[in-house]
Design a binder for these strands. Structure first.
Lengths: 196, 196
DNA sequence: AGGTGTAACCTAGGGGCCCTAGGAAACAGG
DNA sequence: CCTGTTTCCTAGGGCCCCTAGGTTACACCT
């Protein structure tokens, strides 16, 4: 019997592909094993259990998404950076729906594992960097970052859930939303003096 | 043997409670049956299968959320309506995390069932009504509705997924986001003439 | 009150999945 | 070639989904 050459990375990769094809919730140990030509019990040498595997898919997705955003926004600033950032985000969600879904898991991911992943930290840096040109100071900067992330994520999540049934194409609404967010960032409302 | 008095509504209700307590993905036929003091096979007279049950939870949640928003925004307009609308949305998500999660399911819900639920249609009307005071015309109105829904949903989804790790309290960011959205609606960017 | 039909709920069981325990075989290094 | 480690396997327990078919509680009618 020749060995299959499994590894954490190969198992996670196969699971991620499967998630994109059939949906995250249908990714099972048995399915991943079949795809790799292996028995399900063999996977437990490389991955702790199904929950761990899902966490790994989520971290993989976070890293991949971050890389795409970094590439898309390289050298851009202001409105161009905003559009590129948001576009790369949405494109990743469309291209890899299962992986993207994994990032939404409310389950806490193994802290050790999470600490080893560069994606999330890098994503934060990228987002703050993108907003540099708009001249915001803390805490407005954090609030603006959260608003943008919320909108980007909410849009693609609603899109995936079929939440945009109206005749108008989501693409058009997306472009207009970015217009709106850009003007919003340029006219960010001032704080009332009693801030924190 | 005395009958348990099951019905579609009671089964769905028990499942919804369970979802809020232990998380949607852990809601199983067996668990729901145990909570109702019944064997799992008995549930299949009232609910087609687990997927159907999840869909019913989602529709229940949509209806409940819509009702809360309607109550919260009754008689209000402009900024007050916006704040009340968004607050009721977020509060529902916090109070009923499992039910709320069910509304995010990418799975298509049985069309017949969906057609019988007043929630979604009513929610659309409420949202458009809330925006009436801002003087937007189509297609800007639809785009604004989508932007708001995206932001509200995205915020509570990221909040639930632990996406706001920064020191600043999500509540403060939420208040500022509503500030920002209000000014955005008042200064909605004009369309370039070539629209559709 | 008694009879009857319709459900509500049950038992039995097949198949799938998750995961553990322990064994056998491939590979690496000496 | 030999030995140790790692990889992958078989076996199996427990839970879950769902179907088939039986029994019994209840509503309704006479």
């Amino acid at each position: 019997m020749v060995r299959a050459g499994l590894s954490q990375e190969r198992v996670t990769g196969a699971a991620a592909e499967l998630a994109d094809e059939i949906g995250l919730e249908r990714v099972t140990m048995a399915q991943v094993a079949r795809r790799l030509g292996v028995k399900d019990a063999s996977l437990y040498s490389h991955v702790r259990n199904l929950e761990d595997l899902r966490g790994r898919i989520a971290l993989l997705a976070a890293d991949e998404k971050t890389i795409r955003i970094a590439e898309a926004t390289a050298g851009l600033s202001g409105r161009d950076a905003l559009v590129a950032f948001a576009g790369a985000w949405r494109e990743y969600a469309h291209l890899h729906p299962g992986r993207y879904q994994a990032t939404q898991t409310p389950v806490p991911i193994d802290p050790d594992l999470a600490a080893s992943a560069p994606g999330p930290r890098r994503a934060v840096e990228l987002t703050y960097g993108m907003l540099r040109g708009y001249g915001l100071d803390e805490p407005d900067l954090t609030d603006a970052v959260r608003l943008l992330r919320s909108t980007f994520h909410g849009f693609v999540a609603l899109e995936a859930a079929g939440g945009f049934a109206h005749a108008r194409s989501p693409q058009d609404s997306w472009v207009r939303a970015l217009d709106a967010l850009h003007t919003l960032l340029e006219n960010w409302p001032p704080r009332e003096d009693g801030d924190s």
